[in-house]
Amino acid sequence: MLRVTGVRKAYGRKSVLEGVDLRVRPGRLVGVVGENGSGKTTLLRILSGELTPDVGSVHLDGSLGYCPQHPVLNTELTVDQHLRYFQIAYRLRRLGRAEELIDRLGFAHYRTMPVKHLSGGTRQKLNLLLALMHDPAVVLLDEPYQGFDWETYLRFWELASELSAAGKAIVVVSHLAYDTERLDALHRLRGGVLDEVTTRSTV
């Protein structure tokens, strides 16, 4: 469960978020859209614990998986070296889930290659993998499919649906309202406030 209550954030005199409320229950796949500069990244940074809100609170039940918009990786290290680092960070005994995701996303043959030799799409796959490999309860994904080919894009949504069915609370942030039919709810960030624009009738 993710619960955001009355979050406000300003940089100097410029107010970016003016009282954001959001509740994502386990098993819900929620989209947040907004134009460039609408405060999506600021909101994501607050949700992931990188920034403190000026006012308001964020409450998470369980572990968090955060996939930043641009791949945050070490270009000199290989995929396997990244896995080792995050295995320790997440205190995982085995890499079973990570290996399964690597197979699903189709980049098993790049595991020993340094990130600097990987394509943009493969880097994004690794970026996503690092957010999901510990099977988090709450998943924050910032434009997670950037650079994906069509096949991988479809596989990403398949994976998102499975995570949702497994009871994960998922937030996908994007600047465009693509694939709204795949979401349980869609919110628009405008004027520093989050409005719910659509909700899937079946949910």
Binding site: G6, R8, G19, T52, P53, G56, V58, H59, L60, S63
Partner: peptide
Amino acid sequence: RLLATAPGDATVGDRGDSAG
């Protein structure tokens, strides 16, 4: 332990009134 209610829970912020 600002608002945490269960193991693994986490909270950030909560320094003012909710704007609603």
